[in-house]
Design a protein around this nucleic acid. Structure first.
Lengths: 180, 180, 180, 180
DNA sequence: ATATAAGCGAGACGGTACGTCTCGTCTTGTG
DNA sequence: CACAAGACGAGACGTACCGTCTCGCTTATAT
């Protein structure tokens, strides 16, 4: 059933709103009630599908040339220009749709977890941290959030950002806003 | 009509989903059709209500003692502990709801604008920039985004963050992730 | 909408159970909610469709040769052998389905009315009464009921009755069970 | 299991529609599948429960003073005024529900049997026939049908009939509609 | 002063998804 | 190895809400 959600969101290009429970049931070859037996509402199914990584976020891995900033920009460029970014956008939009619809207890699926935990981006930053390339005591997850979250909100609100915008945002996260 | 949206969202504690067009019309003492005469769908009304500042985001101004980091933490603490954060949460959730529902053209209300433009937080950072307290070429809006966006997504997904989480996130933005 | 019910019941040979509200809505070119705006449930719609004579009961008029018993037997024979009886059966089954499903207030559609009021059979008996062919103080409606109701229940329970069964039933009603 | 049906229908006041197979199974302390092992559907179970007399129709026997008409009226009055009539009504409603739902083969449970065969009313009429109180060649079952069936349909459609209505109906069956 | 128009409230409508319910089948685990 | 327990596919139910539409009423302008 979760795979059905991923299929519909990913391949068929459905929005969260367009994604009906009956479609999910049909795609999964399952009765509607069976879905409601296991999840309390549509939001919960979709959320779980997303959080369990059913929707593959990007096909491109983040390069690791040793230069973190260059790697990040390369990857973001690559994502933006290719259609892959659509995946992230679909993912983000669906995620927000599900979150906004859902109640408190559905939201608890997020307990002790960050949205981008499983992303390739996070892994690249984690690698950099392990290689000693980050300031000690820096949480790689926090860095990933500081890059991805503005990016996501930008995508959701104003659409594809410019390269300059992205550079500015990345630089703030890497070098800080304060004078150095 | 926009004020009716704000009233319903703010005082009555409605979600974007719970906010029906008929309720808005009733609250505004207006016929449903009149709403559709001016906006193309529910998302557009709500979005405009939010973007025109109908939903007052915070009552507390960000202090300016000269120490930006301390001021930010003071303010975030204050927000978190008071109920004001609920306003931001309601605002964020409604915003996401409207965005997810809306089509491309409704989203264009965001053209050339950042979500947090009008916030007190942004003003405080802008003040710091003008006082020369930030690295040259740093866009205050980008800094505000880098702080608020992870905060919002954290609120939407996992709920109220811990003080440590907030400090880590603020420090990354101020000092950068790289070694200094 | 009521005509849609009649069409579906009559021409398409649906049972009350097979008759879905969505089908009725589709046949009538109407939204489902519109049906529920005017009737409280499926039973009420179907009941009203039946009671307002949307389902034409029989095409054959009851003959009037002056001999009531002969006329009744002729008519019953004719009905039984032709497909017309199916109409009555469909009508009766639907009626019972609706009645059994419905609540008290829906049943009140029957206030001061007899099921077979509009039937040709009742009219024939009424004609006989006016011609003085019945015992004074005999209510034609009661006579029609005494003939039709056992007939209907027989049809619903055991299927097509034999000619002997019908004769026996008619004779009891005409001549009485007591010795004469 | 059949007793469970009777219990639910009689004591708990359930309608045929409200009578779930799962409820029957629960009441009987039996698995649902076991019911379907013995009957092809819900209608068949309920029908058999009713036809095997699990639902005791009336507690009051029909008196036999020698005056058939007086006895019938006494009994009908008594039934009407007491709650016993509810039993008959529940029985009739359930019967109709089951019949309407059921297919042809379930209906065959009625083969060569009349609905009211086991009723006390039928026995009283049969007694009268054996005592020579009825016209020769009169089938007691037919007489019982001619009295009960309009009565049942009246109950199902318009509710409790008046005493006058009942007298008229009984008189037609006893003396006939024709002039005497 | 009357006529024509234009904007509005009210709310019915077609459509569509929701989440619930029950049927009758199929599966599993226990005594 | 039969049976209770109950998950399952299917699909109808009745509710909610969207965005469109029609209807009168009111107000504003035009003759």
């Amino acid at each position: 059933m979760l795979d059905a959600v991923a299929t519909l969101l990913d391949q068929r290009g459905h929005t969260y709103e367009e994604l009906t429970v009956e479609r999910i049931a049909a795609e999964a070859g399952v009765g509607k009630q069976t879905i409601y037996r296991w999840w309390r509402n549509k939001a919960a199914v979709v959320l779980e599908a997303l959080l369990t990584g059913r929707l593959k976020l990007t096909s491109e891995p983040v390069p690791n040339t040793g230069d973190l900033r260059a790697d990040l920009m390369t990857w973001l460029d690559c994502e933006l220009e290719q259609a892959n970014m659509n995946d992230t956008l679909v993912m983000a939009r669906s995620l927000m749709g599900a979150l906004v619809t859902s109640g408190e207890e559905t939201r608890s699926l997020f307990a002790g977890r960050s949205v981008w935990d499983d992303m390739e981006l996070t892994q690249r930053i984690r690698a950099e941290a392990e290689a000693g390339g980050l300031h000690p005591d820096t949480d790689p997850t926090a860095v990933a959030s500081a890059i991805m979250d503005p990016f996501i909100i930008q995508l959701l609100t104003a659409g594809h950002p410019s390269r300059e915008w992205m550079e500015a945002q990345v630089d703030i996260v890497l070098h800080g806003a304060l004078p150095r």
